[in-house]
Amino acid sequence: MDRILTDSALPQSSRQPQTHWYLRLFATLAQWQRNARTRRQLAQLDDRALADVGISPSERAQELDTPFWR
């Protein structure tokens, strides 16, 4: 006879923690803000600074064309 495990039968450590929707929303908005800020900073770098970081001008242009939510 097969036994089907339910969530209550699983050990406490193997359960997925449930986060509240507002915490996930806050984390998403914070990530979008970081994306926008770092892309603004990237746009201000000159060619010498880009070379120091190891980013080509075409890679910078590609990153700057990406929307902040990605």
Rank of each mutant, 00 (worst) to 15 (best):
R37L: 04
R37T: 07
S14L: 06
R40A: 13
L25S: 07
L23S: 14
P57W: 13
R34T: 04
W21T: 09
Q16M: 15
Q33H: 13
D47K: 14
T38I: 06
A49Q: 15
A9L: 13
D65P: 02
W69M: 01
Q33I: 09
Q41P: 00
R70M: 05
F26P: 03
S13G: 07
R70P: 00
W21M: 06
P57L: 13
T28F: 07
S14F: 14
P11N: 09
P11T: 12
L25C: 06
L10C: 07
Q31T: 01
D46V: 03
Q18G: 07
D7R: 12
N35R: 03
Q44G: 05
I55H: 01
Q62L: 15
A51Y: 12
N35Y: 00
E63L: 15
Y22D: 09
T66Q: 05
P17T: 01
L64W: 06
D7T: 10
Y22P: 00
S8M: 14
R60S: 03
D7W: 08
R39N: 07
D7F: 04
R48V: 11
S8N: 13
E59K: 06
A51I: 02
M1S: 11
R40D: 03
A51H: 10
H20Q: 09
H20I: 12
Q12S: 12
S56I: 02
V53W: 08
